[in-house]
Design a protein around this nucleic acid. Sequence first.
DNA 1: GATGAATGAGGATTCATTCAT
DNA 2: TATGAATGAATCCTCATTCAT
Lengths: 216, 216, 216, 216
Amino acid sequence: MPDTTEKRPEKEPAADARPRRRQARGERRIAQLLEAAASVFCTTGYTAASTNAIAREAGVSPGTLYQFFPNKEAIAIELGERLMHEMRETYSEALAPMDPATPLEEAVAAAVDRFIDFNCRHPVFFALMHGPDIPGRIAEEHDALHATLVSRVEALLSPYLPDTPGPDVARTARMCVGLYKAGLELVLAHEGEEREAYIRELKNVLYRYLEPLVMD
Amino acid sequence: MPDTTEKRPEKEPAADARPRRRQARGERRIAQLLEAAASVFCTTGYTAASTNAIAREAGVSPGTLYQFFPNKEAIAIELGERLMHEMRETYSEALAPMDPATPLEEAVAAAVDRFIDFNCRHPVFFALMHGPDIPGRIAEEHDALHATLVSRVEALLSPYLPDTPGPDVARTARMCVGLYKAGLELVLAHEGEEREAYIRELKNVLYRYLEPLVMD
Amino acid sequence: MPDTTEKRPEKEPAADARPRRRQARGERRIAQLLEAAASVFCTTGYTAASTNAIAREAGVSPGTLYQFFPNKEAIAIELGERLMHEMRETYSEALAPMDPATPLEEAVAAAVDRFIDFNCRHPVFFALMHGPDIPGRIAEEHDALHATLVSRVEALLSPYLPDTPGPDVARTARMCVGLYKAGLELVLAHEGEEREAYIRELKNVLYRYLEPLVMD
Amino acid sequence: MPDTTEKRPEKEPAADARPRRRQARGERRIAQLLEAAASVFCTTGYTAASTNAIAREAGVSPGTLYQFFPNKEAIAIELGERLMHEMRETYSEALAPMDPATPLEEAVAAAVDRFIDFNCRHPVFFALMHGPDIPGRIAEEHDALHATLVSRVEALLSPYLPDTPGPDVARTARMCVGLYKAGLELVLAHEGEEREAYIRELKNVLYRYLEPLVMD
DNA sequence: GATGAATGAGGATTCATTCAT
DNA sequence: TATGAATGAATCCTCATTCAT
């Protein structure tokens, strides 16, 4: 989708016969560049990442990068959008409304497992969403994603907290997301058995935090 | 103190009693500059902060800034050190070994209150410790601080967890610090009554997380 | 005189007899591209015009453009040549030696009308001939065209100024061309009745300038 | 006046004791840079002029240039403003309301002489005001200057054309300015005696154009 | 010490031009 | 031929840092 030219009337990948051929190489390049960007963002953060470094990492010239992205911000945005999309696609289930009969502990564990899995496979996600220096447009993306997350958690929580006032549920959801991020940081910082231990701790934290709130 | 290089053979290898006596004006300048830096780091993050912006914020010329700090990194390091120092000075009590008879809930609440208070008065602290792009030396500072924090929490926790193996206590301590940071972010993001609510939630989180671990 | 490229050793130094036979499609492409170039040059001027923009305006890819023109300059040159050619073809009459009995006022009016008509239909002409930044080769083209214009005006004027020395006639011709351009700019900058008024003024200027010179 | 910093509360050169010293070198640099810019603009036009080329011409580093001008456009604007200012200062007389008894021919000759003198000493003026590619802000400057010129000519003309309707006077003034520019171009393109000849012709053009309009 | 000017390497971005398909 | 991707030098501009006063 990123395109230098102004007009890009198509968005869905169907029913456009012409601009196909170009996307053969192009689409691959875009993926390549996004991957490179992910790697560089992870290492240096958004602000300190240079487009030249991204191009180099992708093994192309700076000009090529700019054939697909109008500027540095757009790379981050596209990356964020793709991650967000994949997150929604693949893990909508992780936060899908569950059978209220599901024990809370199980629900929490399942959600954490899926998210951890996602985040371990996409470490940029965390990196991108954390820079204190990310420019406006990306922050918006981030906020949108965060809001989605929070509201999903809210929806997930609601059945368990039928008597809690709305604002409190919202606050609790925000806490959960925040706690998850904190745990994620620790999980990502460790490996092997220690990582597993942190995952268990994270589940504990969330479960114990929520447990007193739910009704029996 | 501002010094990037580790070893600097010192002009006069003996009797460095003099350089200690920075003039009154000098100290004030440094404080001024660090304050400005804190403000700028908070707004833009470390990487995006320019030394010229810091100088301007401090109301001095760039040259003056470099009369007191050899480079940008040194500013952040000195800032971190001072914050850390103040933290230790003023709040050693917050994590001081307490009377083991103190109920856990109370201990947690007291610690959280003091830290929150500190962090609300020094928002840079949080900002500095979060850039994914902070260069090596600062990260070390950060890590040192973090390690201190963790070990203090560990010490605080120990009396409550006499039967827990060391590594587990360490992990728990790290979790606590991480959770605290997550809560802090939310606390700082809100004001007034909502902020208080988040503080309560944070205490809940920590207390509920730790409670099952303590022996009665 | 301004020139970006100093020396350009010419691709094929010999025997370029073949490239003359451009295919039908090719001719159409060229026309298309020149039209697009005219449009872009008008809007942004020569220097600021990008070959990519021209290709886009023409609805073709940059590669295609370079199949017909070796470089950007060549486009402007070809455009200039064609304009010049059309000018000669269609309006040689405008400056054709006239019946010396034709009153000067009438002759001036006729010439102005034809030129204005031409220039209104080809606004690039004016645009191309005005950039202070057009590179050497185009300037040469321009100069050639300008010289042609001047000498035609000179020829036109001669019958009216039989006693004036050659250099003076030349100077007068150059003045006429310059005045015409000045008027043209104003004419192009206005529309409708106001445009007509400027055309009248331009005729007045030229006529009054020349009138005292002619013998009765 | 050009200044990187946001706040520049002073505009008039009086009553500011502090920022004086800096302007010693600074003001000289600015003049130096503007001179260099003038030279480069003359040679290559605005668009093709590179800031690095200007800096090089001025014998300073690119960074220095940007210490005094926020961007390329600002250089042209400042240059334009200074020229405009000098034009107003020094030559307000050239277009000052004259004694209506002054013969038209004399008035025209005087005005032309002064303007030609000014323009010969500041060839950029012409160059700057002519690029078809100058960006918005400069065009505004240019238009402002042009409008000033036109209205001054209008004021100058009015006494001579008491019975001509306003719009016609305006149009005539615009014609005069246009004709002047056309003549100027020819004047600048020649030297010595030939230049003088063109100046005479220009005066003739204007005088003959206006003469029939004035009342006796 | 303080100031503001000076530096120059580096970063984002553009664009004429070439190349593989 | 046409296409769109690829190139890389060149541009504009920034910023950490140094220097003269």
